[in-house]
């Protein structure tokens, strides 16, 4: 297994419980060397616990963790080539920015010249060079976040862990930091593992992501893959918006409240759910060749770059670019094209 994933992280069959609560249930994951991997899920799904287990701050009840071909399951945090950017940043308030960044190097007793050189290199990379003498309480949220990043990266970890790194930033800064983080990861070519509950953060940053729910990894793969082909209702609704349609299997398709819809793939259930993203429903005045639905606009919501239309019968949400205006009451034809309909695994 390690032959194709040299320098990567392999997590196998991790279970963890706190008292009566099963926080992680048989989690198995593989993070490849040099990729930006994201654990995405709502609060309480176990993603932070998984991150802490990888950092060595918690021990799993069962399972193994392998980093760069070495079993690190029972290695304490202080011995792991893993560093973390904490959610609260956890900067040492009594130490200057320079000393904060130098902390890990000083712990390992590097010579002063090496410390100075490496710390300054990181500070410069993150645009913090003239902040070295300041203290954490003199910095803005964005600056603190970069210091936390520098403090972890200066140790050149095999894998960098980021625990909700942007949750303390305001929305506008967050969008910029997401892109910055992506660029830094690309430039360094290091393995990043981020935990977040913010789907846009996950989509912007990740090479691959895993969606977690109630202690399990439900689906993982490239962001486009997971977004386009959600496996379950939870993934479809958590990652972006989705229209869910109850259906009954019939030969060649499914029977729904919108009539018989042709499907490209055959459902495994007899009664279950179909999903379609709002932006994938085509809207027009002419009846499409197949899977057409006659509907009436009930509400129009302006979203800047697009409009969201709510339609009856439904409710069905359609997202359309703003060049065409619809009004409530307009009668339209919708096309729920077969190649855009995803068959979810959930039984109904």
């Amino acid at each position: 297994m390690t032959s194709e994933n040299k320098g990567g992280l392999i997590i196998e069959g991790i279970n963890k419980r706190f008292g009566d609560v099963e926080v992680l249930k048989d989690v198995t994951l593989e993070v490849r060397s040099g990729e930006f991997f994201t654990l995405l899920g709502p609060s309480g799904c176990g993603k932070t616990t998984l991150l802490r287990i990888i950092a060595g701050l918690e021990l799993p009840d069962t399972g193994r963790i392998n980093l760069c071909g070495q079993d690190i399951t029972s290695l304490p945090a202080t011995k792991r080539q893993v560093n973390t950017v904490f959610q609260s940043y956890a900067l040492f308030p009594h130490l200057s920015i320079f000393e904060n960044v130098a902390f890990g190097l000083r712990s390992r007793k590097f010579a002063d010249e090496v410390v100075t050189e490496r710390v300054e290199k990181r500070l410069e990379m993150l645009g913090l060079l003239d902040m070295g003498d300041r203290y954490p309480d003199q910095l803005s949220g964005g600056q603190k976040q970069r210091v936390a990043l520098a403090r972890a990266l200066v140790n050149e970890p095999e894998i960098l862990l980021l625990d909700e790194p942007m949750s303390a930033l305001d929305a506008k800064l967050r969008a910029k930091v997401q892109e910055d983080l992506r660029r830094i990861q690309r430039r360094l070519g290091r393995t990043f593992l981020m935990v977040t509950h913010d789907q846009s953060e996950a989509l912007v940053c990740s090479d691959r992501l895993a969606v977690m729910h109630e202690g399990r990894v439900i689906q993982y793969g490239h962001p486009e893959e997971v977004y386009d082909f959600p496996k379950t209702r939870f993934v479809a609704e958590f990652l972006g918006a989705a229209n869910l349609i109850e259906a009954k299997k019939v030969p060649g398709g499914a029977d729904t409240r919108y009539g018989i819809l042709r499907l490209d793939e055959e459902p495994s259930w007899t009664r279950g759910l179909l999903a379609i993203r709002p932006e994938w429903i085509r809207i027009g005045e002419k009846q499409p060749g197949e899977n057409g639905v006659r509907a009436r606009v009930s509400e129009v919501i302006y979203r800047g770059t697009s409009f969201d239309l709510w339609l009856e019968p439904g409710p069905l949400r359609v997202r359309t670019s703003s060049y065409r205006h619809f009004r409530p009451g307009d009668e339209v034809w919708l096309e729920l094209a077969a190649d855009e309909l995803t068959v979810l695994e959930d039984d109904a």
């Binding site: 560093n83 973390t84 040492f92 890990g104 390992r108």
Partner: peptide
């Protein structure tokens, strides 16, 4: 006590003495 500082120190390879003097004592 803010335990995240203790964890940060451990994450940054600090010995027990260093965890105490840098994360707990201050």
């Amino acid at each position: 006590l803010d335990w995240s500082l203790v964890e940060a120190a451990q994450d940054l390879y600090a010995s027990r003495i260093r965890v105490f003097s840098q994360a707990i004592l201050p």
